[in-house]
Nucleic acid binder design. Structure first.
Length: 290
DNA sequence: TCCTTATGTACAA
DNA sequence: TGTACCTAAGGAC
């Protein structure tokens, strides 16, 4: 269930559970075994998240535990680099309390401490990378609404010059990092923007509002660990309608609501494939501009 | 038990 | 544009 909010939440959760302490690292499935062996027993020192990319930074071997010892300052503490994780479409992380149960054979990466464990399954990427390699990943990602230092300027520079549809641009991680198929559909609905409008036809005020909204929505997504996008006046309680029963849980306006009535105008929500994903929108609330 | 679908990306042609 | 990759859940039989 990965859009950017999931990844930033995972970064926090990893730091809370494993930060500052040595961690047992293993790869029951085997595909990460060599790197896991290098990392086993190291301290998780820092975490980072950019868009849908998660980075776990492991430090030096704790005193007396490393092969080759010399556990003091600077000893074996060369920067081991970062574990780079991308969940892709199917990847999942499961946390649990110690003791960790026997892993299933799909667990790519297991972290375990005296109090907690984490199992990673099905990621598209789980690799040990160097700091420069991490830098290269940041360089090819656009600004992330969840990174405090980022703003929408670089994204606007690209969007305002592009004939590509705004729906495609919002999914392009080089343009803006962390937005996925749910936030894309929902933020366009919230601002009444036709997903097929070319980027260059967006106005500056429209983009500023979309960016600010993504910052707010995605922060709430990190907090609640799910995507909710309906305004208070459109919640099931406020509208006296049944809550959504769905595996992704959150309350939304259009995502996966094809052929159901729009919460605002009752028009049938439409869906169409766009760049190998399903787009959802309300043709009445998000009319073409011409 | 099989089929479909899914909040994603990279690479080939 | 198509295809490959990774996993699990839900629904149709």
């Amino acid at each position: 269930m990965p859009e950017g909010h999931t990844i930033h939440r995972l970064a926090e959760d990893h730091l809370d559970r494993f930060g500052g302490r040595p961690v047992r690292v293993s790869s029951p499935q085997g595909k990460f075994s060599d790197s896991a062996a290098l990392l086993d027993g190291r301290v998780l020192e820092r975490v980072d998240a950019h868009g849908k990319h998660l980075f776990l930074g492991f430090g030096e071997t704790p005193e007396g535990e490393g092969p080759g010892g010399n556990g003091g300052s600077g000893g074996s503490g060369e920067d081991l680099g970062w574990v780079h994780i991308h969940l892709g479409l199917f990847g999942k992380v499961a946390f649990g309390p110690a003791p960790a149960p026997p892993p299933t054979d799909t667990v790519r990466l297991r972290l375990a401490s005296g109090t907690a464990y984490m199992d990673l399954r099905g990621p598209t990427t789980c690799a040990l990378i160097t700091a420069p390699e991490k830098g290269a990943i940041h360089d090819r990602l656009g600004p992330d609404p969840l990174r405090p230092a980022d703003d929408g300027e670089k994204a606007w520079a690209r969007i305002s010059r592009s004939r590509t549809t705004v729906a495609a641009l919002l999914m392009d991680q080089k343009v803006i990092a962390g937005v996925g198929n749910v936030y894309r559909a929902e933020v366009l609905f919230r601002h009444g923007i036709d997903p097929y409008r070319p980027g260059k036809d967006l106005t500056r005020p429209e983009w500023d509002a979309v960016w600010a909204d993504l910052v707010a929505l995605m922060r709430e997504g990190v907090r609640n660990n799910r995507i909710d996008t309906v305004r208070p006046e459109h919640t099931p309680e406020a509208m006296n309608r049944p809550p959504r029963v769905d595996d992704h849980g959150g309350e939304v306006y259009v995502y996966r609501r094809a052929q159901m009535p729009c919460h605002l105008c009752a028009t049938e929500i439409r869906t169409a494939p766009l760049a190998a994903r399903n787009l959802f929108w309300c043709p009445t609330c998000q009319p073409p501009v011409n």
